[in-house]
Computed example of a mutant assay.
Amino acid sequence: MKNILLHGLGQTSSSWNNTVASMENKLDILCPNLFDLLQDKEVSYANLYQAFSEYCTELSEPFNICGLSLGGILALEYVIKNPTKVNSLVLIGTQYTMPKGLLKFQNIVFHLMPNRMFTEIGLGKKDCINLIKSMLDLDFQHELQKITCPVFIVCGEKDIANKKASLQLSKQIPNTEITFIKNAGHEVNMEAPKELGQILNTFLDRTNSRF
């Protein structure tokens, strides 16, 4: 069964390398570079979700999805809209109702950052700012009950911005587990890759055994 790992904004597919190194069944792990999926389309959340949805149509079903931050939001929407296609879901540092104040502040920071700091993620400064703007009104709060697959919520203990949302997700989605990883912030896949890999191994072994 395929396992799709979706990176966050400011990351690339290589951000999963150390986590994957600690995981089993590596041949079944897919780490798409999200912004490459867009090809020549305008950078917006709607286009990114559509591109990811099209990517999934090429895969045998069901599959597992693990997403961090932006990747988690894409995974969350996909599972809500395609509940029978996903075997299990892992959400890391993920919001389900966009914190508009935080996102607007992030865009202010982006405006102040030099262009060269965006080149490593394959997304320009203007594109990053536009992507954030296109996400401001996202709200999945009233659709969480549609999720029927097993869900694991992961959050870094130091990820203050996403702790509350993680706790709320664990209460509102049926059949959900949650854990907080000590000494890790938001980018759990890079700050605690070995521990995250072990968590994913245990969870995926259990959920894959349903088939």
Rank of each mutant, 00 (worst) to 15 (best):
I4K: 04
L5W: 01
L9N: 06
S14L: 11
S14P: 01
A21Y: 13
C31G: 00
P32T: 07
L34Y: 07
F35K: 13
Q39G: 10
V43A: 08
Y45G: 06
Y49R: 06
Q50I: 07
Q50M: 14
S53H: 06
E54Y: 11
E58C: 11
L59C: 06
L59M: 11
E61R: 08
F63T: 11
N64W: 03
L76Y: 03
V79H: 01
K81P: 02
K81I: 00
P83N: 04
T84G: 00
K85T: 00
K85D: 01
K85I: 00
K85A: 01
N87D: 04
V90G: 03
V90K: 02
V90F: 08
G93R: 08
M98A: 03
P99G: 08
L102K: 09
Q106T: 11
Q106W: 05
N107W: 09
N107G: 09
N107H: 07
V109Y: 10
H111E: 15
H111V: 15
L112H: 14
L112I: 10
G124T: 15
G124I: 07
C128E: 05
I129F: 14
I129D: 10
N130D: 13
L131Y: 08
I132W: 04
S134W: 05
D137V: 13
D137S: 11
D139H: 15
D139Q: 12
F140P: 02
F140I: 05
E143T: 01
L144H: 05
K146P: 09
T148P: 01
P150V: 04
V154H: 00
G156V: 03
A161D: 12
A161Y: 08
K163E: 08
A165R: 06
S166F: 08
Q172L: 14
Q172P: 12
P174D: 04
E177D: 14
T179N: 09
A184V: 07
G185R: 02
H186K: 10
H186R: 09
E187S: 06
V188F: 14
N189I: 11
N189M: 14
P193N: 11
E195F: 10
L196N: 07
L200W: 13
F203S: 04
R206Y: 11
T207F: 10
